[in-house]
Nucleic acid binder design. Structure first.
Lengths: 138, 138
DNA sequence: GAACCGATGCAATGCTATTGCAAAGTACGT
DNA sequence: ACGTACTTTGCAATAGCATTGCATCGGTTC
């Protein structure tokens, strides 16, 4: 369904180049968030920096969001519908599995309201839960 | 109160060397979490690697906990009473100020219970809230 | 004093993120 | 079709943090 991928890019105002189609196609096939390294290994031989910039572009345009899961390597995953460059709606929980080392989005698990001390004004939130994922707990 | 600092180290089974006394003393004077760079700059001329290992030792022994606030540099802050090497009780919220770039522990703001999807078993949680801190919001 | 062990300091390395610059490709107006 | 301008890509290079190996130093023990 290259057509779908292409129109997805266009709807986000991203020029649909061959490289970007490939990257987006790869991203849609993932079941967990991937790092730049994963992407580089998963794709054919391509330039690491180009992949890096492709992810940055996607992030700017609200197509993917980045996740700092504490491993040191930034992970990327497709956004939910409704994200744009200005406003990422990625206020869901991210889960890092200590067993398989994968990072998952839990889009249906929202971060609850937190009562902050007076004077603190929240703008973004980032909740990483580490543990054993569904697949590894069997 | 060098005596207090020394006994704190001993109570955590850490050999109280001159360097460690200095580092711990410095840590107790902080109002926010500090990075290795901050420590290096704040202390007199000392070896970066030694400071790094000192922090690691403190972390192993449950004296400080490390915070990944997404800036790329690991921050360290003193633990609450009750932490040990096996079990860090750092389940409080960490707040990163987008204005002054400081990272604060909010020890009285606990992470609420999160209902995870079936099969996911949580072990650790890490909640970073970014925004404007109390001092900068005035 | 000799052997030993932990702590320290220096050198060196690995990895991720990031930028500069040049080449290749694409779009557009004439 | 041609040239120009803009975008994208690829390569080289750099910066910063984390981490390890090894030698040295200092104190402890026998």
């Amino acid at each position: 369904m290259t057509k779908d991928i292409e129109s997805t890019l266009k709807s986000k105002n991203i020029n649909p180049t061959a490289m970007r189609l490939l990257v987006l196609d790869f991203l849609t096939k993932q079941t967990s968030a991937i790092s730049l390294n994963d992407l580089e290994k998963g794709m054919g031989p391509s330039d690491r920096i180009t992949l890096y910039r492709t992810l940055k572009t996607f992030e700017d345009k609200g197509l993917v969001h980045s996740i700092e899961d504490g491993t040191g390597a930034t992970k990327y995953a497709l956004c939910d519908i409704g994200c744009d460059g200005e406003n990422h709606h990625d206020l869901h929980v991210h889960f890092y599995c200590n067993s398989c080392k994968e990072t998952f989005c839990l889009p249906n698990t929202k971060i609850p309201e937190i009562a902050l001390p007076a004077g603190f004004e929240p703008q973004e939130m980032n909740l990483i839960i580490k543990g054993i994922c569904e697949l590894c707990s069997h």
